[in-house]
Design a protein around this nucleic acid. Sequence first.
DNA 1: GTGAAAGCGCTAACAC
DNA 2: GTGTTAGCGCTTTCAC
Lengths: 340, 340
Amino acid sequence: MKHITIKDIAKVLGISKSTVSRALSSDSQNVSKETIRKVLDTADKMGYRKNEMAVNLRHRSTKTIGIILPEAETSFYMKFTSMVQHLLQLKGYRLLLAISDEDFINERSNVELFDKYRVDGLLISTCHNKANYDFYESFIKRGIPIVFFDRIIQGLECSSVKSDDYKATFFLMEHLIYDGRKRILYLAGPDHISTTADRMRAYHDTLSKHHISYDPSLVIVTGTNEEDGAAAMTAFLDSCPPQEMCDALFCFTDLQAVGAKKVLEKRGISIPETISIACMSGTRMAALVSPAITTVERPMLKMSEEAVRLLLAKIEDINTPSEKVVLPAEMFIRASTRRK
Amino acid sequence: MKHITIKDIAKVLGISKSTVSRALSSDSQNVSKETIRKVLDTADKMGYRKNEMAVNLRHRSTKTIGIILPEAETSFYMKFTSMVQHLLQLKGYRLLLAISDEDFINERSNVELFDKYRVDGLLISTCHNKANYDFYESFIKRGIPIVFFDRIIQGLECSSVKSDDYKATFFLMEHLIYDGRKRILYLAGPDHISTTADRMRAYHDTLSKHHISYDPSLVIVTGTNEEDGAAAMTAFLDSCPPQEMCDALFCFTDLQAVGAKKVLEKRGISIPETISIACMSGTRMAALVSPAITTVERPMLKMSEEAVRLLLAKIEDINTPSEKVVLPAEMFIRASTRRK
DNA sequence: GTGAAAGCGCTAACAC
DNA sequence: GTGTTAGCGCTTTCAC
């Protein structure tokens, strides 16, 4: 497939490549109105499209940012992405998108792909808080601007933005406790996701604060998806003696809550009368399923603004000191429809 | 930010650029084992990454495909994308992703961006079945391989894959009718989405077949989102005399169903006793909300296979005749939990 | 087995 | 205002 180049246009008009190039960028300082018009005209007629790669090669800058998301099952990261895109557009940057599908191998090859395409910077929500530590470390040493968001890599010298998972969890847990719940089943996230630790700590701390003793059988480490939530809930119900039944459920993700809720419904356990459900949420997913599920949303707009700010700072000057932003828990609560 | 180039490696090793280049592609025909080892070694040490744009410029082919999705609110298109990615990877292609956010202006600029990056081909699910007709026509004339999927552009000379919306709709409608429903409220999709017409036709045809007279007040044209579904449902309930209440709801999208269901619940209308809900679905969204919603899923795997096949055919030879694939209605039904 | 040189499409000094 | 030239990083003849 033959693409039209400035050379072709130059030949047709009997002028030089440089003039065409100048005209195409409407450099009215150095090219006559007449020439500009002619060039633009024939370019259009011939179906000319500037070869971006040649431009980038020449400029040694692509004016594009790569963003890497762990998943696109929920719309959380996509919404974030959409906000980021608007912000970057204002600054003259484009956005390239990749999904890792919760696989750190994929994540790594996405990073490498973007690197090969010489993106000016990278926005990453990582699948795994450890697996790629060395990889990223050497990357950052090479001077490539990276900002991690939402899911970060612990201990890595880099800029990052995340929401205050500890406080958010604390808040939701207290919500359940004030609702009279005492045996709160917690579906934790997998260890390798960076937010797990903070939330787990908050779970323990809330119990302590309210003098509720910790029961290890009430904490189940599982995956982030609907199926994981369903499986965990089923396992719990099957193994738990009636007198040790939980009276509330706290989920790591809203997808888990969705799965767990289905199991409860199937077994005829009423919500929220018998059991109250709360979950951390980035999406409308849980609330969408039922207003009886209380959710906390992470402050996305602020997160995207900060991510872009930090990234552009690094791009402007790679020696900008790294900054680890933890967003205050600006929480938007959807209260339970009914209380005890 | 200075990137390492083959020139740098050549200088360090005191050999020529060409040898480095050959060594990097492990051309053991023309380079000694020894040299290859040395080059690979120092390349690694120096943190060399091949500049993909220089390669592409030289090769005049990028080995990448651009995919453009209308939305990422639901996970339908992302799942499709994931399948496509696997298939393309096997053929040595990479995938670049863009989201148009249901805006045909965005869609167009995404196409242009990919074109500027000289992707080898384009996979598009379009936001609008008319708005970009001329645009695409000239694009295709210029010889750029494009395959439309799911949402196509009517009348355009091009390859495309879609599912059999007519049959799927017919099936769901009959499901409702066999369930004893007669006044089926239909939340249609907006006119500019290509699937709307087929589904509307099926709505009418099913009624005819079962000798149910058509009532225009039972068809509401609205948007695809949750809010649209909620708004349409509210409008209907507010304006409809009690004796003209519908006994079933058929939605264009699962998101609409979600919105409508919330309104129904808020008004204390029980599902599925009073009203039965069915919807076209690409995602788990609707089923996730309630097993009482019957859904039809579009056959994604087959669609991705066909899309890739058609695209690669065009890439291999742009003069391959276009093919319009309509996938047989391989439907996966989730039956209502209860029947009348 | 290796090097020199040309060129992919573009921009930006530098001349005139 | 326009043309000439060099070069971005790479691959690929064509010599040797």
